[in-house]
């Protein structure tokens, strides 16, 4: 199957590059977006980019540990998302505001 052929040509570096690109998107999202929820999502994106590289490494170095790690990371990411959302919700309930620029009291 040609598709598999072509998939075989896709090497570690491709995965890593993709992961880097996703990671960068995540970073840019964190840096640029004002909405807290979107920022949260961007962070998830970054974590998933990392997961991608873990998987890739695991696959290409035949090291299963990497895949175990992905499980860990996914769990942690879920927890993180949970905590993050909880904080976001609490804040929204309190201030009716989820624009990150609203929270600049602590400074100097």
């Amino acid at each position: 199957m040609p598709s598999i052929e072509s998939l075989n040509q896709i090497g570690l570096n491709h995965y890593l590059a993709l992961s880097a690109i996703i990671f960068s998107f995540g970073m840019i999202g964190v840096l640029m977006r004002k909405n807290v929820i979107v920022m949260l999502m961007s962070i998830e994106l970054m974590l998933n980019a990392v997961n991608l590289s873990f998987i890739a490494f695991s696959n290409f170095t035949a090291n299963l540990n990497g895949q175990i790690m992905v499980f860990f990371v996914m769990t942690i990411a879920a927890a993180e998302a949970g905590v993050g959302l909880a904080i976001a919700v609490m804040i929204y309930k309190k201030f009716k505001e989820i624009n990150i620029r609203y929270f600049e009291q602590l400074r100097g």
């Binding site: 970073m27 840096l31 640029m32 990150i100 929270f103 600049e104 602590l106 400074r107 100097g108």
Partner: peptide
């Protein structure tokens, strides 16, 4: 330094980056 520490989360993230 205080003016760099302007309270903006994303600015801090930028420093990290």
């Amino acid at each position: 330094l205080r003016s760099m520490q302007n309270g903006r989360t994303q600015q801090y993230a930028l420093y990290i980056a």
